[in-house]
Each structure stands twice: as C-alpha cells, then as structure tokens.
Write a protein that binds this DNA or RNA. Structure first.
Lengths: 158, 158
DNA sequence: CCTGAAAACCATGCATG
DNA sequence: CATGCATGGTTTTCAGG
C-alpha cells in the first residue's frame, strides 16, 4: 500500500499539521481556505490512509537526561544470516531509529543515552542481542534535527 | 540554559504528550492523576522552559514524494575554517538533521529527496554552499525512526 | 501549587446544496 | 465533496484554598 494525496489542499494540510499538529481545525481551515468539516474529513482520511502516521512532541534530550547521542553502524558477524537485527534490537529503547544502508555496514542506528557508561552498556547489549560488530560515532553537537519536511506544491508525484 | 523538570508528574506528562501530543487536557489529567488546570499549567511551563520544544506530525515520506533518504558526512576543505557549515546549509530543506560528530568527518546530515538525481543535485549544492567534501550513505530501508523517548521515572537527573 | 466552576471555544455528525 | 448548524466536550481564566 502506497499512501498518496489528492491535491494541493491535502498538501497544505499536511504541511501545516506537520509544523503544528496541535492547531485547531478552525485554525487549519482558515490557513487552507476550506470549511472546518471539510478539513476534518481530509485530515481523518490522511490519517487513515497512512499519509500521517502519528504525532510527537519534541523533547529537549537534556531535560530528560539523554545528553549523549550517537550513530552506531552494525554488521552481522554471520553474513549469511537473514535480516533480523532490527527486530532483535527493537526492545532497546535507547534506539531511536534503525535503517539498513548501502555502505560498509549493514545497518545504522541512532541512539540516545545519559552517560558514556550507558553507551558502553548499550553497545554491549546490541552486540549480544543481534550478534553484530559495531562502529560507533559519537555526536558532539546537534545543530538541528526533526525539521518538518518542506512540502512545495507539485513536489509530490501521484 | 539547561531546561529541567520538577518531578515525576512532569515526567509523566512529557511521556504522554511525547507519544500523543493531540490528547486533550482531560485525557492527560486522568492519566497523570491531576486536575485539568494543573496539567495545563504544567504543560505550559514545560513548553515555555524549553523542555517541550515543539510538536510534529509524522508524515509517510513516500506519500509526499521523498522516497530516498541518506546520510551525508561532510568535511570542510579548509580545516582551519570556523564551524559555519550548519548555518550555510540550513536553507537546504532536504536536510532534516545536522550534527557535528567525533569521527572521520566533521558533520553528518540526514537528508530526504525524491530521486537519485535530486540527491546528486543536493550533494552538489552542499559542496558548493559549505566548501566541503562529502561521503554519502544511501538508506535502503527504514525499520523504525522517530520512536518516542522512553522516560522511566528516575532516569532524569536533576 | 492545586481545585472547581463559568464562559468561550472547538469537534463532531447530520442535513443540505 | 463542501457547507452550516446544533450539541456535547474542551480549553481557558479566575477566584479561592
């Protein structure tokens, strides 16, 4: 199933709700120039068809004690084994993202922990849980992240 | 300024609003066991002190035509130059995140584009805008991303 | 700092162009 | 598929503990 959008009004709704998902339907409706009920119906369709897959608050990692973040590239020790590493690691909640990549490693993770010792423990857990070697790159400073997608009209092929 | 939280009620609010920022104050208030007004006041304080820095809708990249994502490591051609690359690249809205890292490269970017040709153009733009060399790792599959932070009580040092 | 209540506002469903 | 209205729920503010 490949979710898809109808027109530029949907695109505007997605752009607005992407930036400010707590806006009221009334606010959205005047920003996109449509009645409240119409906006509500479209928003619900965008949610149920999987264009909008969820909502998040963005939390300052410092404020919740996750001061250290890192990228961890992982490679299965046994190259014949199937691609089960992501499932084997899913329970480790320090892992924020997991992608398979075209490069030296098989996967890359983005993780957040409190201390270097927590990072050490996490790496050990990852190695044990998924039987992989790891290569860790520590983040020194985050300039920006979670930037909302810029959705120019016409940038979405049907 | 280092934002910080008072107690476990704030932590619960952050955890809940992180997972579901469109929940009503009434819903939050029964999840954390406090009156609606108290929850509202705390939520506003968490926002104004920078613990909650914003809200986002999570959009299926496929649905908006961003089918290709990648990590781009960049290194300034002139190692003496100050750390201006992040500002020089900020206008490129295909860039979702920018971190400085401890590793071979100086920075790592996470980017989303529509096509390989767009990626090619983006890499050229990055090289020109910031006078950097690049090393690109294409994402083949995203297993998960944007996972909400798990906030166990007591995991946030004061 | 929390509570509770009054007023303004918003979401929701349905009937209608 | 969009609109406008009625209604029940939600947010907001403020007085009081």
């Amino acid at each position: 199933m490949l979710p898809c959008m109808d027109d530029s009004v949907d695109l505007s709704i997605v752009a607005e709700v992407s930036r400010d998902p707590r806006a009221t339907l009334a606010q959205l409706s005047e920003r996109v120039g449509l009645g409240v009920s119409a906006v509500q119906a479209r928003l619900r369709r965008l949610e149920s068809t999987g264009v909008i897959t969820g909502y998040r608050a963005i939390i300052d990692p410092q404020a919740v004690g996750r001061t250290l973040s890192a990228f961890i590239e992982i490679t299965p020790l046994d190259p014949r084994q199937p691609d089960v590493a992501p499932e084997l690691l899913e329970h480790l909640d320090a892992i924020e993202a997991c992608h398979s990549i075209a490069g030296d490693a098989a996967y890359i993770l983005f993780v957040r922990v409190a201390t270097p010792r927590d990072l050490e423990a996490l790496i050990r857990d990852i190695r044990l849980a998924a039987s992989v070697s790891t290569r860790t790159t520590v983040v020194l400073q985050t300039f920006y992240e979670n930037r909302p997608m810029a959705l120019a009209p016409g940038s979405a092929p049907g």
